[in-house]
Design a binder for these strands. Structure first.
Lengths: 259, 259
DNA sequence: CGTGCGGTTGATGTAAATCAACCCATGTGG
DNA sequence: CCACATGGGTTGATTTACATCAACCGCACG
């Protein structure tokens, strides 16, 4: 372990139960579920320990069991699986505010790997505390379930994306989703959205080859959809991307809770 | 409608609330969750109305909301989505014993279409009854959640399958899954597993073309993995299929509930 | 007895994979 | 401080898996 792995921000390190840290998680839940002030407060007061991970650190491996519940406060993470021939498929991308592993509370063995994509801050919540909250507050239980259902819906859209779209619109669709999902926990749309993903990771994300990703990226760039400087990749014209992907965000189920 | 399509077993037709009909659903839940005799009985006593659907009937359409909870007692159904260019992707296959739409209890709008693949018998359970059960019996609530999580896990495996495997192993993998999942609700493995899917549907299932499915099927047949007579398609040598697909069923989480 | 759907087959096209260099920025150790 | 290793990215030549196009077949059914 290198020193910077242990570097916790003062706030996180010293006052794990203080309000502020879990705000982004609450905002994520609010994006799809109605939660009263008391429920929100209960969530914010969840005990947790903060942990900063390096890019590429594993959080959970296929076959293991976890008895923790990590929330992603900053940075990106992803789920992935390997095929027998070594091919890798990224099956989910998680961003700030996302719960990373609700399923291990209910399934014995992980069916996929969970790894950070960038440097990331996690909040490790004791399952006891979460279970208690779920038991006593049905609205929160429901919100967490909705969160699980929405991730499943995103997975179905990815199936459509990988199964039925060509490389260009596949890439554009992914980038659109990135923007819309980032938007969920932010008050204002940022003027510039950075895509913190290497071309190899994009390939594993979209079921393509790094080489082909490279060529498709330049194609998207010349269309104006993205902007690149050096290794930095950023969203260019979102309307262009939406057009290429025929993007619709209904599958994200924003504010779609039912009564 | 041909006569044999209307043939309901006496139990289903005449005594929808009697025990027996929902047995297969209970068995499905038992395959991954421990349920006491009382819980099982409570499930079996759920009120429902039986409905027989023709092959190809829609159960739910994208954009709609449903306030029913259909269980699949016999036959097959599937979820699918359309791309802008008309391409279709089947994103889930449901078989006897599966709950077809738990998510509509929690999300306002369906993000996919739900359609029968074959003639099918549904048990339509009033949401009230199900909600009551979930509220009073936490073990059952947990079992239903596990069911949802396993479907999500299957979706991730499909992503790997479609994103990273070639046509032959992709097809073999799907057929393996079919066998293993059918096995879940059956005491004994059947000597012959029929695959009630047209080549076009296989194409939409696997992100391929009907023509290519056709050629891949003959390739699988000559390898011994499948047997075909006329339009009937059946599993041949499961070991062959498993070998071609490098199949492992851990993602199905059989008997994997945690404490 | 047509009609149509599902399946079959061959010829051809093409999107994406593969192979193989090479580049460049960054970081690292001698 | 330079030499080198490394990881991402870039590029062109070539191959290939799969798509597309266009017939045609044959059983089932109305």
């Amino acid at each position: 372990m290198r020193p910077d792995r242990l570097a916790l921000t003062p706030d996180l390190a010293n006052a794990p139960s203080a309000s502020g840290g879990l705000d982004i998680f609450v905002r994520k839940l609010l994006s799809h579920s109605a939660l009263g002030p008391d429920d929100q407060q209960a969530l914010r007061l969840l005990p947790y320990t903060a942990r900063r991970l390096d890019a590429g650190d594993y959080i959970l491996r296929e076959g293991e069991h976890a008895d923790i519940c990590p929330l992603l406060l900053s940075g990106f993470a992803y789920r992935h699986k390997f095929a027998a021939d070594g091919g890798r498929q990224i099956v989910a991308l998680k961003m700030p505010g996302d719960a990373l592993d609700l399923q291990s509370l209910f399934l014995r063995v992980a069916d996929h790997n969970l790894q950070t994509l960038t440097v990331a801050d996690l909040a490790i919540v004791p399952i006891r505390a979460l279970e208690e909250l779920v038991r006593t507050r049905t609205t929160i239980a429901r919100a967490l379930l909705v969160d699980i259902l929405i991730e499943a819906s995103i997975g179905r859209e990815w199936l459509l994306n990988i199964g039925r779209r060509n490389a260009l619109s596949r890439l554009a669709h992914f980038l659109c989703e990135l923007v819309y999902r980032l938007h969920v926990t932010m008050a204002e749309p940022p003027d510039r959205v950075d895509v913190p993903v290497t071309q190899e990771q994009l390939a594993d994300l979209l079921g393509l080859t790094p080489v082909h990703i490279n060529r498709t990226l330049r194609s998207l760039e010349s269309a104006g959809g993205i902007v690149r400087q050096g290794r930095r990749l950023a969203i260019g014209d979102l309307d262009v991307l939406r057009g290429i992907a025929s993007y619709s965000d209904i599958y994200l189920h924003r504010g779609q809770q039912t009564g």
